[in-house]
């Protein structure tokens, strides 16, 4: 599916379902500023939501994050359990109440055009072992109107909601890439029209 068709897809879903997640896949990788620290954080995410099926992995390391560096920093591998491209409109209250929250993007956090992933992580820092959940919103800006930023991707926010790194969050310009692509599935082409 070409980008124009993806746009049509976004429009059609926006009319029907509010800020639902749309089928798409993301490949992201690069560095961004540490959370207040002097070094760089390393972030990779490969995730897909195609025909309603979700898959993917996230890896992250920020060893110089302020408030965490004395314990060896933040480091984890994660399995993606929710993913999708955020559509145009705010989530409708009815939809949020009746539907599975995994079908919707985080309201006012992951907005139109961002790709959201939710994940279960396992800490890889022996000093801070454990599991938890988190989410990230990223944006592919390589060809968009915001290309004036001179970068190809933004991590709008990543927040770890539980586990050993509960409360950690970060955001920034990614030196590397965030590429959002259509799913290869032919069924998605049918949905586009």
């Amino acid at each position: 599916m070409k980008k124009a068709q993806l746009g049509l897809l976004i429009t059609s879903f926006a009319i029907m379902g509010g800020c639902a997640k749309l089928d798409a896949q993301v490949n992201a990788g690069g560095t961004l500023n540490s959370k207040g620290g002097a070094g760089k954080a390393v972030f990779t995410a490969h995730a897909a939501r195609c025909d309603g099926e979700v898959s993917g992995k996230v890896n992250y390391k920020d060893v110089t994050a302020l408030d965490w560096q004395q314990s060896g920093g933040v480091s984890f591998n994660a399995q993606v359990y929710g993913a999708g491209l955020c559509s145009e409109d705010p989530v409708s209250p009815d939809g949020a109440e009746s539907g599975d929250e995994r079908l919707f993007c985080k309201q006012d956090i992951c907005t139109e055009g961002m790709y959201q992933v939710e994940f279960n992580y396992n800490s890889t820092n022996p000093s801070l072992p454990g599991e938890g959940v988190g989410f990230a919103c990223m944006m592919d800006i390589s060809e968009g109107i915001k290309s004036g930023f001179g970068a190809n991707g933004l991590l709008n926010v990543m927040l770890l909601e539980s586990g050993p790194y509960q409360g950690y969050n970060n955001a920034g310009t990614i030196s590397g890439n965030v590429q959002v692509k259509d799913c290869p599935s032919s069924k998605n082409d049918d949905n586009a029209e």
Partner: peptide, 8 residues
């Protein structure tokens, strides 16, 4: 703002 910019 929270994003750095190479141009800036």
């Amino acid at each position: 703002g929270k994003y750095s910019s190479p141009i800036e």
